[in-house]
Amino acid sequence: MRKQPLNRFTLTFESRSANESFARLAASGFAAQLDPTVEELCDIKTAVSEAVTNCIVHAYPDGLGEIRLIGEIFAGGLVRFRVKDKGRGIEDIALAMQPLYSGLGGERAGLGFAVMESFCDRVSVRSKPGRGTCVTLEKQIQGKLVGGDG
């Protein structure tokens, strides 16, 4: 049976680059109720920033679209974020997740998924070309009580 979250939020915003900082602050603000360490909060901010930037740059390359950020907290301190778009979708997910593959070249390092994976416990991607993409990020918060930074 699917576990029910203890708390949940949904945020919908336009795919404007100014919303990258808004999304990561919302995510870290939500996770703050688990009393995470500064490091853990930074991990969440960085991973969410990458996922949202991917939507802005790749899902809606030619205009504005809708991005949905869903946050959930589960018993035991697991936090899950889903970043959904209704954009272009990904043809080859395995290829898109490879480090240094950007598909755009130029100023993008092609590291978005590598960064998400290095700062989260689990990253998964579902996508349908022409329909959109959903990136799921999960992180187990150890928090300050378990040998954090005090």
């Binding site: 990561r24 930074c42 901010k45 960085t46 920033s49 990458e50 930037t53 130029g106 100023e107 993008r108 390092a109 590291l111 978005g112 590598a114 960064v115």
Partner: peptide, 13 residues
Amino acid sequence: TFMDSSGVGLVMG
């Protein structure tokens, strides 16, 4: 105070 992979792109470019 904060950087994601855009900082890497900045150095590469």
